[in-house]
Amino acid sequence: MNTLLKQSILALCGMLSLCAGALAADGQLKLPEFGGLSDKASEVVTITLDPALLGLAARFLDPAKPEDAAVREAIAGIKGIYVRKYVFDTDFVYPQADVESVRKQLSAPGWQRLVEVRSRKEQQKVDIYLLVEQERANGLAIIASQPREFTIVNIVGSIDMKKLHELEGQFGIPKLELEQKK
């Protein structure tokens, strides 16, 4: 009886880890709850756009307007966008372990670190990861942390970086100055 119970538990654990693997494989990160941080933060941005909400948002983008049309194109293959941003008035109020736990998820197979920025002066860390599957970007993760703020961005789905790039300069999206140094 005991053996049967153990086997059942092992099978259940196996199934759960498979599910967790599948979750990671589709590019969606498990973001911590960050419970209680809202009270300490001076600014909180929590954005959870699942496929249904993304579809709804897309319906409110006017295809006749070029900037809206560009957004529609940029999000065409995207299944979800999840953003957490917290800004504080004092240094390191937030549990860095929570942010690190997200970083750890990005060591899973498929995720590739595209950019790693470490600024000692501003104590800033920015990491950009791409989930590459069959030579396609199927997920994007950005983890940016500073003493008084951290931001986690997780975009799930097929990402066309070129189309994302085309959004620069619109809706307050900063214009990247990549081409200037050519």
């Binding site: 756009l49 948002a57 950005i142």
Partner: peptide
């Protein structure tokens, strides 16, 4: 809900662009 979702989408893209900008500048 649609307008709110649109607002959130634009804000998410703005934040993404902002962080990509920091990285690219670095």
């Amino acid at each position: 809900e649609g307008l709110e979702a649109r607002k959130q989408l634009i804000e998410a893209l703005r934040l993404t662009g902002e962080k990509l900008d920091i990285a690219y500048q670095a």
